[in-house]
Structures are given as structure tokens and as C-alpha cells.
Computed example of a mutant assay.
Amino acid sequence: MSTPSQPPQPGDQPAPPPQQPAQAPAVPPQPTAYPYPNPQSPPPGTFYAQPTLVGPAAAQPQPGQPGQFGRPEPGNPYAQAPQFGPAMPAPPSRGGGAGRAVLWAAVGAVVASAAWAGGVFLVGGKNDSADLRGYSAPSNMCSSADYSSFRTEYPEDDSTPTKTSLKNVALDESYCSLGLKKTGSSYADAYLSMQLDLHRKTDPGPEFTATWRNYGDSHTGYDVSPVSGIGDEAYLVGQDTTSGSSSSGSRYATLAVRDGWVTYTMTYSAYFTSYDQDKNPPALSDVDDWLKKDAKATLGQLRG
């Protein structure tokens, strides 16, 4: 039979106290949003070694380790560690080779950028020289253009012509549109428009050629023919839809001229109606001759 345990008697030796676990190394206090210094904080300039972690804790990023600040923990948007002041630059290398290579690479990039920009400005300045050939765009094209060849057929003046003008660093433009009237007409029997453009920033040559030389490709039923002796290039575009009728259809003709960076167009149009059969418009062949003569005279006057 077992003997029951007896309570400790006076004079017996007390049992040794339980052994305390080893105390973890001291960890420096972490910064907080509290704006005043902690009375127990160590003086500035004191550094601590980071404790060595063993086991699962070693796999977790610890404050102060590379990649911790400014990189939130995946899946946790609130794990962003605070930033404390600007990062200190790395001390200059005393080896000389790598440091100088980086420095010269940066200087070379700056010099190359400056040279490239200078080249662009030089090329741009050279190409911005507009070939205006001494032309000037009048403020009133209706009184400056010559259309005297049409006066025999249409002697009556238009008292309210439409005129506009534009003065700009990129473009000077003058425009006039007026009605042509036969003797005794109360309304216009035909219409005439004239437009002069001085292109100050871009050469209109390629687009002008593409537009007018190929006008028949983009507009059905028009005849296109080149004209020599006026400017650098000129094209006459015409269409006649009357088909011998004196009461329906229309006649249309445009002379487009380019001289350097200056373009000029002169357009005639007439519409047949049943109420003015006794006032038939002239033949397109006559109108073509009038356009050539008056356009050449107008450009001569505006060129000075």
C-alpha cells in the first residue's frame, strides 16, 4: 500500500524556483506617429544590431530589411511601412572605374539630347522659308481681282458681293464671290468666285497636285487638263451637264494655279432654268479662255 504524501515540515529545504526562459535580445524602439521624443529612447547616433531570428519568423520580412519599406505585404493593403525622410545617397565610389563610367554616360546622354534638339531646330528653321514670290493678299479681293473678260457677257455689277480675308502667321487668304448678271437681269445668271492663299508654313505643292491633277478620279463627270504658262503648274477642271438642253443642267469650270507657295483658284458656274431660256450661258470653251486670261492678269497685279 502506498504511503500518502506528507505536507512539508519545518526545516525541510524549499524546492528550487522554476527556471525562467532566456530573455530575448533588446530590440530598438520602433518609430511612431508621436511627434515628441521618447524619454527612454537612446541618444541619436546609437545603432543596434538586428536580432538573428530562427525558425518560421526568419521567413517573414522584418522592419529595416531591404524591400520592407514602401512595399506592402501581398494581400494586405495596410502593411505599407512608413517612410522616414529621404533616402541617403550611396557614398561615391573610390574605385573610379564604374563611378566614372556612370557619370560619363549621364553627361553623354545630356549632350546627345542637346545636339538632337539643336539639329531639329536648325532643320525646322531652314524648311520654314516660304516661297511667296512677292505676292500679297488684298483685304478686298472683289476690287483687286481682274475678271474683265466676263464683262461683255455679264455687264451688270453685283452690288452686294461676298468678300473675306485672313491674316495669319501660317496663312494669308483673300476670297470673293459675286453674281454675274446679263443686261436687264434682276437676279444673277451665273456666279464667279476667286481665292488667293499665301501658305507661310507649309509647301502646298504635293497636295495641290494630288487634288487638281486627279480631280476626275474623285469627282465623276469632270474633265481635267493641265494649263501651261501660268505659275509653276495649273489645271483646268470643267463639267457640262446640259446635254444640248436650254432649260436644265449646268456648266462649271475652275482654273487652279500654284506659283511657289501661293495658290489661286477662279471658279465659274451657271445653272439652266426654264424661266430664262433666252439667257443661255456661254460655252465652256469661251469660259475657259476667260479664266486663263483673267487669272494671269490678277496674279500679275497681286505679285507686284
Rank of each mutant, 00 (worst) to 15 (best):
D189S: 04
T267V: 07
A234R: 11
S228H: 11
A234Y: 11
G249Q: 09
A190I: 00
T241V: 13
A188G: 05
N280H: 02
Y264V: 00
D203Y: 02
Y271M: 08
W212N: 08
Q195S: 05
E207G: 15
G229F: 06
P282A: 15
D223F: 13
K279R: 15
A256G: 13
S243Y: 15
G231Q: 03
T254H: 07
S269W: 02
V224A: 06
Y268I: 03
A270V: 01
G221D: 08
Q195T: 09
M266W: 01
Q239P: 06
L192N: 11
V227N: 09
S274Y: 12
R200S: 06
D189L: 00
S193T: 12
T273W: 01
T202N: 09
G231C: 03
Y264M: 02
T267F: 06
G216V: 06
D223S: 15
I230A: 12
P282R: 14
P226T: 10
P226W: 10
W212I: 04
V224P: 14
R258C: 01
T202E: 10
S243D: 15
A256N: 13
E233Q: 14
D232I: 08
S274A: 14
T254S: 13
T263W: 03
A188C: 03
P204T: 12
S186Y: 03
S193D: 12
D232W: 11
P226H: 11
T265R: 07
F208V: 13
T220W: 13
G205C: 00
Q195N: 10
G231D: 06
W261A: 09
K279G: 02
D217C: 00
S186K: 06
L192V: 06
D232F: 12
T263Y: 04
I230W: 13
D259Y: 04
K279F: 03
D278H: 13
L236G: 08
T241G: 09
L192T: 08
F208G: 10
R251L: 05
W212L: 03
W261G: 09
A270C: 02
